[in-house]
Design a protein around this nucleic acid. Structure first.
Lengths: 349, 349
DNA sequence: CGCCCTTAGTTGTACGTATAACTTCGCGGG
DNA sequence: CCCGCGAAGTTATACGTACAACTAAGGGCG
């Protein structure tokens, strides 16, 4: 039996192996590699340990460390759906900051969380230090709060978050910028196309819109659509064909909705932006892919994720920062133009 | 600073607490909750244990279990960027199947992997059972193979994967369908716009394209663009303005590229699809947001992720399936039309 | 010279789980 | 009558780490 050597995946070296190689005790290895050796271990010894670790390709066993420390250095990110580019960008930012702090990120699409647990052993989610959750997935939060984990909310009502820290984008200001842009172009009859009528963010947006309109004599109606291009198109077709004066501009809560509005306009024989101005939100890839390119409120999505994760990590460290809302800015492109009623007050058609 | 009382989170109950409550030993709890109790524990006792666990809200400590078992039930998904909707959908599918098998998914954007490790303690990635990696992030794989983890590749050369299992989309067939669609419309002068000239998938696509053209007298040129709308637009403007007969159709490796081509066409005064047909790949949200809607090869991205994760889990179980490539299908929309040269062979302009 | 302090480590233990190995008891067969 | 065996548990241990508590040696100082 010469070649019985079955490539049995050499077991990963442990801190004890390193200790043996360096001629010290396991505790010393732990001290040195954990940067707790100041004044406890001689420099020459420490270097010997580091060399041995390097030599053996030692990687600490995280399961053991987590067990010992009672923490996992892992955070859960809860978003409605990663397929929305905005949340993908939030994830990118959050994951970057997490990595910088030695944290990992696991990610559950919200639907998976609300699904009832199969059995008491489904506790993958029990091995977490904290949760970073979008308010847009708040139905799923009940399941999470049950675990009583530290929680940071993304874009949520600070008052309604039960003491959880909150990180916000200044969407109210974004709404103000978009509205004032349209007002400056002479639009006085607006349509607000929203994706989620019930959410806190809707009320924030709506309040900012109303504030911006105050005293201008301009009016706004609201329509609702699901967050898909086609649903937005259908909703916009209905709203733009409704009796009464037709809006000359549509403010959308999302670029996807704005794209749907543009399609609706085309079907109705309206030209964007000459007959109808359209603004979006988020500044997704979509915004510059459609024709005309969308005027939209650009959100610093990655930075949002970064700040969210940074805040969560701060909370885990015992601090409790309440960062200021992140500034947003309007990007003016081709989907907005002066109102057709501005120079000729006679309604078209 | 009065209320520094940090909500001292009652320590989670352990299996020993459950044992005490049920009046049995910790080992019995482990047996019952681990479904290993057949013929070892009486039904009445088992029920008592389960009741106690329910009562206390017991959740097993995953760190302890991982340490004991030497596995983590966690897989790493490596993709170039989540902000590409295609990979977000792959993730969705992979995460779903993983959850069904009690696995978690951590996700590293490829750039984070190639960044050099900060110190030996960056081993978050060491606590994994396996890796599911897109070939489009293959530069990052060196770092992973160092860990010698079970690996399943997504859309990779089966021959070049060093024994790793492979899950593929039938992109060659997709390319064939797109090409034959254009040939059927009378196009004879094609442009192939590719994002990644060096990859294996490019060669597969290119080979399928050549095969489909064989004997038809049609010709194809190739242009390259980065995977952004603007870069594709620039590349397409150059290619379509080049001397010699202008292609009447562009086959793009991605919907994002196709959107860029449409924008280029508009700048050049060409009408899509009357003057120029364009096909995409992936069938992203983008495909139906632009005008005209894109004829594109729809890829079952979620199913792709599902099959990838299922294969990885099978590999971890000691099986080694080689699933058949997933079928894809062409979706014909508004961006393709009969070639202008078909009825009037005289070049336009 | 005896005492204490600093330096440089080591020994021991706990984290919570899974499971191998052992115990105890009742019972049926040889 | 005793042996063995299956049922129904229990006891003990190991996984790899971090750190509290201990030890040992040397040196300065009164």
């Amino acid at each position: 039996m010469a070649g019985l050597q079955h490539d049995t995946a050499a077991p990963r070296p442990t801190s004890r192996d390193v200790a043996r190689a360096a001629g010290v005790s396991q505790a010393t290895v732990s001290l040195v590699l954990g940067d707790k050796w100041q004044g406890r271990v001689a420099e020459r010894t420490a270097e010997r340990v580091r060399a041995a670790a390097r030599e053996l390709g030692y990687r600490p066993n995280l399961a053991a460390r987590n067990l010992r420390l009672g923490r996992t250095r892992t955070a859960l990110l809860v978003v409605p759906a990663l397929t929305n580019e905005f949340f993908a960008r939030v994830h990118t930012g959050a994951a970057r900051v997490a990595a910088q702090h030695g944290f990992g990120v696991v990610l559950y699409p919200a639907p998976d969380l609300t699904a009832p647990a199969r059995d008491p052993f489904d506790s993958a989610r029990a091995s977490l230090d904290g949760v970073l959750a979008s308010s847009m997935a708040s139905e799923a939060l009940g399941a999470i709060r049950g675990d009583e984990l530290p929680l940071v909310m993304l874009d949520s009502d600070p008052a309604g978050s039960l003491g959880a820290s909150t990180v916000n984008l200044d969407i109210a200001d974004g709404m103000r910028q978009a509205t004032e842009h349209l007002l400056g172009l002479g639009h006085r009859d607006l349509l607000h196309l929203a994706a989620d009528i019930d959410s806190w963010t809707f009320h924030v947006r709506r309040a900012a819109l109303s504030t911006a309109l105050r005293g201008t004599g301009a009016t706004v109606r609201t329509a609702k659509a699901l967050l898909t291009v086609d649903d937005a198109r259908v909703a916009a077709e209905a709203a733009l064909s409704a009796p009464g004066p037709r809006p000359t501009a549509v403010i959308c809560d999302d670029d996807i909705l704005a794209a749907g509005v543009c399609k609706a306009a085309r079907r109705l024989g309206l030209h964007v932006p000459d007959d109808l101005s359209v603004t979006g939100f988020d500044d997704l890839t979509l915004a510059t892919a459609v024709e005309p390119e969308l005027t939209t409120v650009a959100l610093p999505a990655e930075q949002f994720g970064e700040q969210g994760m940074a805040t969560l990590i701060a909370v885990l460290d015992g601090r409790a920062p309440e960062p200021a809302p992140l500034p947003v800015h309007l990007v003016v492109r081709g989907s907005t133009a002066p109102s057709p009623t501005a120079q000729s007050p006679v309604p078209r058609h």
